[in-house]
Structures are given as C-alpha cells and as structure tokens.
Amino acid sequence: MNVVEVNVNPKRVKHDLKKQERSLLLRRFLSNKLMVTGSIIIVLLLLLAILGPKLTPFDPYEMVVKERLEAPSSHHLLGTDNFGRDLLTRIIYGAKVSMWVGFASALLSSIIGLAIGLTASYYRYLDNILMRICDGLLAFPAILFAIALMAVLGAKTENVIIALTIVFSPEVARIVRSRALVVREETYIEAIRSQGASAARIIWKHIAPNTISPLLVKATFVFSEAVIVEATLSFLGAGVPAPDPSWGNILSDGKDVIYTAWWMTVFPGLFIILSVLGLNLLGDGLRDLIDPQSSTK
C-alpha cells in the first residue's frame, strides 16, 4: 500500500479560506451569464468613450463636403454623415456625452434621492411634504417633464444633467424611503438608540448604509433611462446642442436621409440599444446578487 504524505500548512489553509470567502461574490457574479454580458458591454462602451477619441484619426466636427453620406468602407468604417463627418468618430464622441450624462444624472439623483428619502423616512412631519412634492414631480411623464425643464434651462449638456436629475430624484427618493422605513423598525436601530445615539447619527450612519443596495440597483436603471431620455431630448433638439455629437442628434440628422443613408440611423440606434441593454442586464444581475430572494430565476 502506498502512503501518500499530505503536507498541510495550516497558515496556507487559513489564507485559502479567507480567499474563498472573498471569491464567493465573484463566483456568484460569474455564474450569472446575463450580468457578465451586461458588464462586458458597459465596460466596452466606457472604454470606447474614454479611449476612443484618442484612437480615431478623424475630428468629429470637421466637415468634408466631398465625402458627404459615404457608405461604410475601409476608410470610414461606419460611413459618413450628411456633413461628411466620420460617423464612427461622431458615435465615439457621442458615447462620451451619453455615458457622461447618464452617469452624472444617475449619481446626482442617487445623492439627492438618498437625502430626500432618508429625511422623509425619519422625520414624519417632513414625510408628507417631501413625498407630495415627489408625487407631483412623478406625475409628469419623464420625457415631457425633461423637455419642459430643458425649455426653461436652455439647451446645454450640463442642463441635460440637471434636468434628468430633477426628473429621476423622486423615483430614487421613493425607493430609499420605503427601504429606510423597513430598516428604522429593525432591532439594531432601537439598540443603537438605546445606546444614546442621536437622530442624525441613526439616519446617516446606521440607516443610510442599509439602503445602499436597492439604491445601487435603482441607480443602474436610472443610468439606462437617462441614456434613453438624453437621446430622446437630443433627437427632439432639446438636449445636447449641435454640433456636439450625441447619439440622439446623430439619429435626428439621420432621419432626413433615412432612405439614402441607412447607416446614420442604424449605428447610433444600435449603440443606444446596446448601452441600455447592457445597463439593464447589469441592473437585473445586481438585484439578484444583492437580494437573492427576489431572484428572477
């Protein structure tokens, strides 16, 4: 009989255990194929938005009248638009705008929504006031409301972010508030109160971190909705002003020549679909990862 000597280093085992615990989240992430797909799409789009401008040899603003409406070729990979500008370059710069607008409005509405939601959940006399304001804001269809805000603010990329933040903050506030209302009844909140913690400490230090997970999921969806609304606004001419490229106003330019230059409609449209799909897959996956009970599977 052969005796196999197993040399176990106890320190090594401990280390592996800790590693295992940390990789649990990673493994759960990897087992969710849809979420991995979504993440890859988003990472690629972000890379495109960040690195793309450095890689492309064209200028998104330079008009070359000779090369108007050229079909996709090896020189212009996705063709050119009605001013002879390289479409791929326009789309890359558009990705920068769309991703930036989406990310910034998701971040800002998360911060504002968190503040409003938490305040409303803890101070009951403010609850009614804040929530009625939110209800009022939510009563307008998002796009209509955004157009109205843009009309007031003026067409500018920063104003799109402000408008979208105003549109989406109430939604985030509602989510945070409903979660916070559950958390504030938890025993650990009562326990820290019985230890002498002040109201401010309880809200911002103990309730807030417990609302982050639904907030994170919501923020992802706000991101994707913001991309759509931004594209819509730009399409309608109320968003990012020309000549700045944005997927929405490339589409808008393309609609006049849709029969002669299909690429001007299809490619920016494809990028909008891809980014929204990627973000939604990521959001769904995050929800499953954070709260396994609500898993869609």
Binding site: T187, H206, N210
Partner: peptide, 15 residues
C-alpha cells in the same frame, strides 16, 4: 443600558 431579546437582529449587519 439595554439589551434586547433577539441578538441576531440587534447588531447592524453593515458594520
């Protein structure tokens, strides 16, 4: 000071 009935839910899970 006070201690509560259910130790499983008396500590904040995020800290």
């Amino acid at each position: 000071s006070m201690i509560f009935q259910d130790p499983l839910s008396s500590l904040n899970p995020v800290f």
